[in-house]
Structure formats: C-alpha cells, structure tokens
C-alpha cells in the first residue's frame, strides 16, 4: 500500500476523532436535556437534532456550504477574523460533526434515560448541586451509552462522503478522506489505489462496530 493511501487513512481518522471530541460535549448537553428536562419546543429540538440522519448528506453539505460561504453572516464573520472554512480540513471536521451528531446525541440520551433517577434524587439530599450530580452520578452511570455513541458517531464520520465533498471538496493532501478518495481514484482510473482505501475503510469500520457491539454485550 502506498504512502498516499496511508496518509489519507491517517487524515480521515484524525479528522473523525477531532469531530467526535468536539461534538461530544454538545451531544451530552442535548442528550441530557432531552432525557431529563421538559421545556417548550422540546419536540422541535428532537426533530432538528435528528434531521441530518434523514436529510441526504449532500443536502446537508449544501447547507453547510452556504452557511460557511461568503454570502452568509456566519461566513462573513469568520472571514472578518481571518478564518477560512470552506475547502479546508475544518470543513471536513464540521461535515463529520453534523452528520454524526444525531447518532451520538441519541445514544447519549438513551444512556442517560437508563440511569435510575432515584440516584440523582438521593444525591440531592446529600447536598449535591445539579451539575455535580450530572458529573459524579449521571454521566458515570451512563458512560456505556456515551462511549457507544462516540464509537457509532466515529464510524459514521469515517464513511462520510456527501456533505464532505460539497463543503470540503476532494483536494489531494488537504481535504481528501477515505470515502472521497475512493470516489476520485475510481473517477481518475486509479482503481488499484481505490481498492487499497477500501481495504483500510473496511478494517476501520470492522474495528469500530466490533468495539461497539462488545460494549453492548457487556451491558446486557
């Protein structure tokens, strides 16, 4: 396997890990809110969180392209402080974050829902604040759901194609991920290189799903 193949695989893994690390705090916050609180507009938040799951990734990519482009306020604000997102590695991370977020948030939510609320009530009688209860009781007891969600999100991020190619493109050595690489190699007649990427993708996906299943088994 060529050094180029390895470099693409390494880049993809690093991007996916970054995406999950950045989205996990948000996924925990949203998962906790949905599992433990009732508030006006909850159904709307639930729907919006799940949207990237059903929206074609290419459509998500188009939305991101517009959002971070020069014509949107967000894009202009970032441009003003010298941050360029579109067609850079940052766009790769953002695309991965958005498409994997629903999977992570849902898994975190169900993990938290499985924690007996009476533990939280009891911790309150011992003087613990809501934040301390979350940190010392709820999250540790929901850790399997959180880790399973992170693995699932990581796997989804590894295979991400549609949103990535829209917002980050397929720039060799800069934004080319495993999935995008396979596509461009086939398009340019480099089938052998594409098969190398396929093999690495399969190995990574296998490892992630295996780890996630083992976690579920331990819980059962």
């Amino acid at each position: 396997m060529s050094t180029e193949t390895w470099a693409i695989a390494r880049f993809t893994v690093v991007m996916a890990l970054t995406a999950i690390a950045l989205s996990l705090p948000f996924a925990i916050a949203i998962g906790w809110l949905l599992a433990r609180r009732t508030f006006p507009g909850k159904a709307l938040v639930e729907t919006v969180v799940s949207l990237p799951l059903v929206l074609p990734p290419v459509a998500t990519g188009l939305l991101l392209l517009w959002l971070f482009g020069r014509r949107s306020p967000v894009g202009q604000a970032l441009d003003a402080i010298g941050i360029e997102v579109v067609f850079t590695w940052k766009a790769v991370v953002i695309a991965m974050m958005v498409v994997s977020f629903p999977l992570v948030a849902r898994s975190v939510r169900s993990g938290i829902e499985q924690v007996d609320r009476r533990y939280e009530d009891l911790a309150a009688t011992l003087g613990a604040t809501p934040f301390r209860i979350l940190r010392t009781i709820t999250l540790p007891l929901a850790s399997r759901g959180i880790v399973a969600g992170a693995i699932l999100g990581f796997s989804r991020a590894l295979g991400e194609f549609g949103a990535t190619i829209m917002v980050a493109g397929a720039i060799p050595g800069r934004t080319q991920t495993l999935a995008v690489g396979i596509y461009t190699f086939v398009e340019t007649g480099r089938e052998e290189a594409a098969w190398g990427l396929l093999l690495l993708s399969a190995l990574l996906a296998f490892g992630a799903i295996y780890a996630s299943n083992r976690l579920v088994e331990v819980r059962a």
Partner: peptide, 20 residues
C-alpha cells in the same frame, strides 16, 4: 427548599448506594 438545602438524611428501602 430544594432537597440539597434541607439537611435531611434519607435512607431508602433499597439503600440506593451509588454503584459507580
């Protein structure tokens, strides 16, 4: 007063020790 400010000790029937 919220539970955390009541200074009431509570021992439920099943003890509810934190399993972690």
């Amino acid at each position: 007063l919220p539970a955390r400010e009541r200074h009431i000790g509570y021992v439920p029937q099943d003890a509810l020790l934190f399993p972690n």
